[in-house]
């Protein structure tokens, strides 16, 4: 049995949040540079150029990449041979969120309940944490800041099991185009296919944090990813809805088994700021 102190987790999460708040993922920067090189529209080029400038100004000026510093989302994979001492994983993560909110500083964007009071918790807690158990004695954390604009435009449908891949492509493309500029394109699409109602949403969220632009290992899904990307980039929403041929940077699908009566599809949209990182402890 290996031991890991919760303070170590807290420090690692704190460092991760401080890093992703100001420093753009180099793969995102590269994908946006590539988008700029192939962009046809002059205004979209102008905007892409400003986004790339922002990537260098943000760490230099210590101003967050985006003022919506988001909900902190964490995927934790906890080895069954690992024991956390001096506190819980959830406490460690929320302490880190609280501390980062003060020090970065991050925008306090979380309210205590959705419907009635909507009192701001003032420290960005609670984080949204998903935990899975794995073999071994490591803790893997995927840490992300998820902005509200893109999250609000995400969508889910329990489709008919008779639906074809064409039906799914239409459903996804129509949904993304209806969102227009609200989710801050160019986007990363996380798509879940299969599982059940809650499972498919989680697949879609997880898919966002796959390696940017990776092709699905199953060639049938890789083709579907490529089709969705090509169709969306041909249909003219473009960077920030101002037109051009770069509505999406990447499309990632994750799939899972499901009930004979079901074909769940979920699409989680991610803005171009795509603030995320991976930590191993």
């Amino acid at each position: 049995m290996h031991l890991l102190s919760s303070l170590k987790i807290q420090q690692a999460v704190y460092r991760a949040i401080s890093e992703i708040t100001f420093n753009c993922d180099p793969q995102v920067h590269q994908a946006l540079s590539k988008a700029m090189a192939n962009e046809h529209d002059e205004i979209a080029k102008d905007v892409l150029n400003t986004i790339l400038t922002n990537h260098s100004l943000s760490p230099a000026d210590k101003i967050p990449l985006c003022q919506d510093t988001g909900t902190t989302v964490v995927f934790a994979e906890l080895g069954t041979d690992l024991h956390i001492t001096d506190g819980s994983l959830y406490e460690a993560i929320n302490n880190a969120v609280r501390q980062a909110q003060q020090d970065c500083p991050l925008r306090a964007s979380i309210v205590n309940e959705a419907l009635f009071a909507r009192h701001n918790t003032l420290d960005n807690t609670p984080a949204i944490i998903h935990t899975e158990f794995t073999a071994g004695h490591a803790l893997r954390l995927v840490i992300a800041q998820k902005g509200g604009g893109a999250e609000n435009m995400s969508f889910l449908q329990m489709m008919s099991p008779a639906a074809s891949s064409d039906d799914i492509v239409s459903y996804i493309c129509d949904g993304v185009l209806a969102a227009g500029s609200r989710p801050c394109p160019p986007l990363i699409l996380g798509i879940g296919i299969g599982s059940n109602f809650e499972g498919v949403a989680l697949l879609a969220k997880k898919a966002i944090f796959e390696e940017l632009g990776r092709a699905n290992p199953d060639p049938r899904y890789a083709e579907l990813e490529a089709r969705i990307k090509a169709e969306l980039n041909a249909r003219g929403c473009g960077v920030q809805g101002l037109g051009g041929n770069n509505t999406v940077l990447a499309v990632h699908i994750l799939q899972a088994p499901c009930h004979i009566a079901s074909l769940p599809v979920a699409v989680n949209l991610e803005c171009h700021a795509h603030r995320h990182c991976e930590v191993w402890l």
Binding site: I63, L106, R107
Partner: peptide, 22 residues
């Protein structure tokens, strides 16, 4: 339509940007 992020000590403002107008 903007909710800025807080200004760090010594800065004029924090992060600035638009929210969804609709």
């Amino acid at each position: 339509y903007c909710g800025p992020s807080p200004a760090a000590a010594g800065k004029i403002c924090g992060g600035i940007g638009p929210t969804t107008s609709s």
